[in-house]
Simulated assay, not measured.
Amino acid sequence: MSPPPPATPPAARPYRGAVVIGGTHGLGRALALGARERGLLTVAYGRTAASLDDTEDLLPRFLDLCDPHSVRTASVDVPRPCYVLWVAGAFLKKPLVETTEYEVEQLTRLLFTGPVLFLRRLLAGAEGPVHLITIASSSSWKRREQESLYCGLKAAQATFVRNLVPEMIAAHPENRVTLVNPGGLAVPDFHTGLALDFGAMMDPGRVAEIVWDIATAQRQAFTEVQILRSRAPGSEGTPEVSYGARAPQPPEEPAPTAAPHAPHH
């Protein structure tokens, strides 16, 4: 599927900065480094901010999305106008009945309520256009097993952002929103404890390049994009890009269609 056609609104003013919520590891780190390479003054928020070098154009800041106090008090003094990237995430594969109350609470804070509350603070102080880039997941619409909590939170993230678009356009006509649903990324720490073939998964650096290319070319108010990994022999893990939303898959595999019987002679 090709990109959506250009819309009539003018291109937004050049952005001065980038703010990456969850910018210290995995895809978030790759996106933060990509922002710096594009000449943007970049603020990278995360619990492991100390792992990034503090330079003139890359500013690590500690933020624990699971800690309400940290979400309320972390500085939102950022360069504007700016890109705001919501990337923070963690994975959980476990039946719901085996999931502890603490795990439910922490994952919900990390994937949804923490970023929403922090984003609320960032947007409240916006004095110019903001381009929100949200990294949700193909798990927001794909059929999964033992991942109900993770998938539900990713679906909530995607739905929240789609419905935030009218508010952002009302706040500033040049605001933009990009919703990205990526497939499996080669980030071993994200899939802790799982035996996966990371060689057949997507490179986060390559996916970050694709995201930045899409976002910087976007002129319409909202774009949704799927970045899924190829499973074709010889091309495993190659990113495949398509545009538009996907309908949620049913919880059960469709029944196989019986092959037609050969006619009798």
Rank of each mutant, 00 (worst) to 15 (best):
E174G: 06
F190Y: 15
R206T: 04
M168P: 07
I169N: 07
N175C: 15
R144I: 08
N175E: 09
N181Q: 13
W141F: 14
E209Q: 07
L185M: 04
T134G: 14
G183S: 08
G183P: 12
G152Q: 06
P173W: 12
A186L: 11
P182T: 05
R143F: 05
E147A: 03
P182G: 01
P182A: 03
L132E: 12
T159V: 03
A208P: 13
D197L: 05
V165E: 11
P188N: 10
H172G: 15
F198A: 00
G183V: 03
S137I: 02
A195G: 05
A186N: 10
A200C: 04
G199Q: 00
I133Q: 04
T192K: 15
Y150G: 04
A156N: 05
S148W: 14
P166H: 11
I135S: 03
I135M: 04
P188S: 13
V187Q: 06
I135Y: 03
S137P: 08
C151N: 13
A170M: 11
S139I: 02
Y150W: 05
G205K: 00
A171H: 01
D203W: 12
E147T: 03
A155M: 00
E209A: 07
L185W: 02
P173K: 15
Y150E: 10
E174Y: 02
S139T: 10
S139M: 02
N181K: 10
H191W: 15
R176A: 00
S148R: 09
M201K: 08
H191Q: 06
T192P: 10
A200Q: 13
T134F: 11
V207M: 08
H191A: 04
K154E: 02
E167F: 05
G205S: 04
D203V: 08
D189I: 15
D203T: 09
A136Q: 05
L179N: 09
T159A: 09
V177H: 05
D203H: 08
V187P: 09
P188K: 05
M201H: 09
D197Q: 03
P188Y: 07
E147W: 01
M202G: 14
L149I: 06
F190S: 14
R144P: 00
L149C: 07
V130W: 04
R144G: 14
S148A: 13
M201W: 13
T192C: 13
V177T: 07
E147L: 03
